[in-house]
Amino acid sequence: MAKPMTKTQLVAALAEEMGAEKKTAGAALDAVVAIITKEVSAGGAVTLPGIGKIYCRERPERMVRNPATGEQIKKEADKVVKMTIAKALKDSVNG
């Protein structure tokens, strides 16, 4: 498995693709991340065309097991961020 692309590498690739400076590409990436974070934190969802949908899902209160002791404990309800991958991306990876 290849190493994941770092933010610096992503900004450089984005700048090259846009034909812009790295500073502009970095600002654009930061703006997109901020918008996604704000929307998902508020309980909404964001669809990135060709990539997928990022959304927040609530998990109910449940019983979990402490792996060290085997003890059953109650875990409070919480929220978890999920992502559904777009069919176009799956097809490009598999085909």
Rank of each mutant, 00 (worst) to 15 (best):
R65S: 01
R65F: 07
Q9N: 14
E61N: 07
I36Q: 11
R59P: 10
V40T: 12
D30C: 05
V93T: 03
G43Q: 14
K53P: 05
Y55T: 04
V40Q: 13
G70R: 02
G43E: 13
T24H: 09
A28V: 08
S41G: 10
A68R: 15
V33C: 13
G44N: 05
I73S: 03
K87D: 07
T37C: 08
L89Q: 01
A28H: 05
G50H: 05
T24Y: 08
I73E: 02
M83D: 01
E17K: 14
V46Q: 03
C56G: 07
T24D: 10
E71W: 00
A28E: 03
G95H: 00
K22I: 07
M5K: 13
M18L: 15
G26Y: 14
T47Q: 13
R57C: 10
S92D: 06
Y55D: 06
Y55M: 06
T6I: 09
E71Q: 08
V93F: 02
L29E: 12
Q72M: 11
K87T: 07
I85A: 00
D30T: 07
P67G: 02
S41H: 06
G52M: 06
A2I: 11
G43Y: 11
S41A: 10
K38E: 14
C56A: 15
I54G: 09
P67H: 02
A28Q: 05
V46R: 04
K3R: 11
M1S: 14
M83A: 13
G44P: 00
D91T: 02
P60F: 09
S41W: 04
A28L: 12
V80W: 05
T47D: 11
C56K: 15
P60K: 13
D91I: 00
Q72W: 08
I51S: 08
Q9R: 13
K87E: 10
P49L: 02
A45E: 11
E17L: 07
L14N: 03
V33N: 03
M1W: 09
A45V: 07
V46E: 03
P4V: 15
A13S: 10
A13K: 10
K74C: 04
P4H: 14
K23C: 13
K90E: 00
G26W: 08
E71F: 00
R62N: 01
S92R: 11
A77Y: 09
L14W: 10
T24W: 05
A34P: 04
K79Q: 08
K90M: 00
G44Q: 04
R59E: 07
G50F: 08
E61F: 01
N66H: 09
N94W: 00
P67C: 05
G26H: 14
G26V: 06
A15S: 09
E71A: 09
P4Y: 13
M83H: 01
V81W: 05
